[in-house]
Design a protein around this nucleic acid. Sequence first.
DNA 1: CCCTAAGCGGATAGATCATCCGATTGTGTG
DNA 2: CACACAATCGGATGATCTATCCGCTTAGGG
Lengths: 201, 201
Amino acid sequence: MGHPISMSPMTTPLRKDAARNWDRIVAVARALVDQDIPLQLNDVASRAGVGVGTVYRHFATPEALLETVATSCLEALAAHGQQALADTDPWRALEGFLFRTVEAQVTDASLAPVAAAATDTLPRTTELKRALQSVGTALLDRARDAGAVRRDLAAADLVPLMCGIAYAVNVHGGTPADRIDTAHRYLATLLEGLRATPQHA
Amino acid sequence: MGHPISMSPMTTPLRKDAARNWDRIVAVARALVDQDIPLQLNDVASRAGVGVGTVYRHFATPEALLETVATSCLEALAAHGQQALADTDPWRALEGFLFRTVEAQVTDASLAPVAAAATDTLPRTTELKRALQSVGTALLDRARDAGAVRRDLAAADLVPLMCGIAYAVNVHGGTPADRIDTAHRYLATLLEGLRATPQHA
DNA sequence: CCCTAAGCGGATAGATCATCCGATTGTGTG
DNA sequence: CACACAATCGGATGATCTATCCGCTTAGGG
């Protein structure tokens, strides 16, 4: 699957047992994140049935493990971003992309902290975040050129705003279904404000 | 100043040395919060020049200490809320109140965690939060009755949204001045969306 | 089959947290 | 003022959590 080496072909492949342990650890971490249990590496080790040293060797910090867990989700977002760029309607493209982004953050607890972190542990995370940022910038610029969004919001505001919405949803709370609904309402409201406001012209 | 007993007249006053230590501890905590240093009670004790036991006796948990630090700020907000209720323009009143709220959260690091916490440690905090909530509800209802805000946002959304904005500002980062500016931009955008949107009628 | 290096795993040192209790000090009383 | 007693102090201490190090095991090429 998604072992580190699958991204960097220059590294010697992991030994079979190492790969197995890597999978176990990430699977356990995924489960913990889904249950909102904080990632403590000692704990992960015992749950995965491996030694503490093994976990620390693969992932130097809880953040590194969390980023690994988040990777697939980030990749899916980036992929959708590419599709959005192909949409001919600039506003619809931006709107759809942002909806997916918040929905992902609200659905997957691993995403929010990774998105909000100023500095990344893994190069892969940096790479993916950069890609997402550039897609967002492109979509926003296009929408702005089309006169569809107000001019005082910059590309650098997109990530913070999406994180803010996700955070607000968490504060609001509720069942998973509620949360998605809340996320939609909040984002819809924000987008209404994001639109260029012709009534002020 | 604001010792616990000043709010509950039924309790015997603190002994002189106890009051002095209480002040020292809160002052140190205030300073730590302002420097974004996490509140660790052992650490607070040594910085305040008191024993660990003393700190733990006054504040059972870091949250209790944080809530105490935040109290004066919450009181100021509640006071402003009362003034806002006196404003005859429903929209302006709501807008002003919300601006103050985010500004406070962005300015004072003790506020955000206290506002976002689902459950309070101190009764006083619960009381103040309830008061703020009811002011917010009143302002929102009034604005809605005046047809000034969209109907699909409830009073229960106000706190989460304000926390979300503050969080977004933190993710965005920058100097204190930048942060206040960012907060204003974000809130202005959100408020634009919060307004009733007549062009959809 | 054997050798080597990659990988394993847990004992353990180090840091942090929170409690408990003997020593100290403020305060009301005679 | 001297005393008694209760309130408060403070840090030694045990519990918990974090992360490293190193002797043992095992995969996999020759």
